[in-house]
Computed example of a mutant assay.
Amino acid sequence: MKINTNLSTIGTCSLFLTALASPCCFPLFGFILAALGLGTFELFGGWTMWVFQVLVALSIVGLFISYRKHKCMYPILIAIPSALVIFYSYHFLENDNWIYLMYLGMFGLGISAIVNHYRNRLHYSCCITQEKIVSEINLKSTITCPNCGHSKEETMPTDACQYFYECENCHLVLKPKAGDCCVFCSYGTEKCPPIQTGAGCC
Rank of each mutant, 00 (worst) to 15 (best):
I99V: 12
I99A: 08
Y100I: 02
Y100A: 08
Y100F: 15
M102Q: 13
M102E: 09
M102D: 01
Y103N: 06
L104Q: 05
L104D: 08
L104R: 09
L104W: 09
M106I: 03
M106A: 05
M106E: 04
M106K: 01
F107K: 10
F107E: 01
G108E: 03
G108Y: 06
L109R: 00
G110M: 05
G110W: 06
G110C: 05
G110A: 07
G110H: 02
G110I: 00
I111P: 03
S112D: 01
S112G: 02
S112T: 01
S112R: 09
A113G: 04
A113L: 05
A113N: 01
I114Y: 00
I114E: 08
N116Y: 04
N116S: 12
H117N: 14
Y118N: 14
Y118H: 07
Y118M: 12
Y118P: 00
R119D: 14
N120Q: 02
R121F: 06
R121S: 13
R121Y: 03
R121A: 14
L122V: 11
L122F: 08
H123T: 03
H123I: 00
H123Q: 10
Y124T: 12
S125K: 15
S125N: 14
S125D: 08
C126K: 15
C126S: 15
C127P: 10
C127Y: 12
C127T: 15
C127H: 15
I128S: 10
I128K: 15
I128F: 02
I128Y: 08
I128H: 07
I128M: 08
T129R: 15
T129C: 09
E131S: 15
E131T: 13
K132C: 10
K132T: 04
I133N: 03
I133V: 13
V134W: 01
V134Y: 01
V134E: 03
V134L: 14
V134Q: 09
S135V: 02
I137V: 04
N138M: 11
N138V: 02
N138H: 08
N138Y: 09
L139W: 01
L139D: 10
K140A: 10
K140T: 12
S141Y: 02
S141Q: 02
T142I: 10
T142D: 05
T142E: 00
I143A: 06
I143P: 03
T144C: 04
C145D: 06
C145K: 01
C145M: 04
P146I: 00
P146V: 04
P146F: 05
P146C: 09
P146D: 01
N147G: 09
N147M: 09
N147Q: 14
C148E: 05
C148M: 08
C148F: 11
G149S: 06
H150Q: 07
H150I: 00
H150K: 11
S151Q: 09
S151F: 07
S151K: 03
K152E: 15
K152Q: 14
K152A: 14
E153C: 10
E153I: 12
